[in-house]
Amino acid sequence: MSAVFEQIFQVGFLAAIIRIATPLAFATLGEMFSERAGVLNLGIEGIMLLCAMTGFTATSVSGSLWLGVLVAVLTGMLMGALHALFTVVLGLSQHVCGIGVTLFSSGLAYFLYRLIFGQQSVPPSIKGFQTVPIPLLSDIPVLGPAVFNQFTLVYIAILAIPLAAFVLYRTPWGLSVRMVGENPRAADSAGVSVIATRFQAVILGGALMGLAGAFLSMAQFNAFTFGVVSGRGWVAIALVVFGRWDPWRSAGAALLFAFVDALQLRMQASGLGHIPYEAFLMLPFIFTIVAMAVMSRNAVAPSALLKPFRREER
């Protein structure tokens, strides 16, 4: 009897980790593409919120979940394009623009949500994504029900990690992204369009942030609330650094953070918390700041990060 209970506990716990990690993995991969091309996107927090809102609204109106996901992704691409327009084309300072994009997108998300749904005592909800077991794989003990009986978006996230690594390290476009992030001058001499490549990378990043937002409002919470993102964008900024701008390591960092988060939720629920749960939530930020100090000796950050590129300036 206790063995059965233990197994349910384990499966539930593992499944929770996967679900917490999924939006973080999307967001982290998105931020990583942007930063590898040399563009820090601090707009991520607001972009995720706006995408969660537009995706939720589209689904709420049309009844189609996948249309909602599409709208969220398009919203993310649009906001990515906005950030790229300012930072890549106009060469404005990336950190200030990013804060501007976050303030603008979150303001717009609040405004439009209130305009469309009004002020209701019970926030409207949708019938969100349901879990889809994968035949055979979901029969594997413990791991099967935890990993292979999930939302489709979770499977997409799992596939997105090797895909991101492949695109970044094995395709000509990925090479261009890495070049414009490390040495835009050399990339330009080699005939790579720095502006175009960075633009594309930031937009791809925005699309992934859109998936992160869509997951939050359409699979995890099935509603849009003003706190639906609540700092997950900033967590992604930390995880990219912690994961050393690498798709595998960044996704690993997301999984590690999800483990800590799931643990803290479980401790809170069981009332065992002698340690305040906030201490766990602080950890990724503290670890990242420490990691930045430790890593600074071997300079793993993209060299051209935060530096705008202007062809005529030598």
């Binding site: 601090l42 930045m292 600074s296």
Partner: peptide, 26 residues
């Protein structure tokens, strides 16, 4: 961190906001 370890101040100062916020909540 910037002066001693050449750590980017944009990201470290931003991330500290979350640390302080959770400390306040705790």
């Amino acid at each position: 961190l910037r002066v001693k370890f050449k750590v980017d101040d944009v990201v470290s100062s931003l991330l500290l906001n979350s640390v302080i916020y959770y400390a306040l909540m705790a």
